[in-house]
């Protein structure tokens, strides 16, 4: 009888604490730094094939990956992403719930700040620098690695 009560109250405690724990649990996030060019031979490198749908929607025709990082992000803790051209981008996981993630991206280079909520499996592609000489820097952010 005592074990029944104990199991029941443990279940209650777990169920009550689970949402709060899940909300603050680290989330694996894959961040890539890309450079897009308006000129050149059109194409997407093999390593960026998963981005083809989004990259081909822009006016940039040639793409190169300049960096990548796997971050274990917790809400409200910003991660700084350095850009090869100088400067950095701040990426903050605002919250992650039910697979959807909300990110804030602050790009001083383009004086742009965004707050984007993406459903599970979706990815953010954001231009983080003003275009110079026909090219611009981008970051891609995807929760879940």
């Amino acid at each position: 009888m005592r074990s029944t009560w104990t199991a029941a109250w443990v279940a209650v405690a777990v169920l009550v604490c689970l949402p709060a724990w899940a909300a603050d649990a680290p989330v694996p996030v894959r961040i890539r730094v890309l450079q897009g060019f308006r000129q050149g031979a059109p194409g997407v490198p093999p390593g960026l094939e998963d981005l083809r749908g989004q990259l081909s929607a822009t006016a940039y025709v040639r793409w190169e990956q300049a960096g990548e990082m796997q971050a274990s992000m917790v809400p409200k803790k910003p991660v700084s992403v350095s850009l090869p051209g100088g400067g950095s981008v701040s990426v903050t996981l605002v919250e992650a719930r039910q697979g959807a993630a909300t990110f804030e991206v602050s790009a001083p280079g383009s004086r742009t700040q965004s707050r984007v909520t993406v459903p599970p499996g979706k990815r953010i592609v954001q231009q983080v620098s003003a275009e110079q000489g026909g090219s611009a820097w981008f970051v891609t952010i995807k929760a879940g690695g």
Partner: peptide, 19 residues
Amino acid sequence: VTSEDLAAIVLDTSDGPVI
């Protein structure tokens, strides 16, 4: 999206947004 100097464009693709 808020941008001080530049116009921001959001493209909604099947894989996610492009800003």
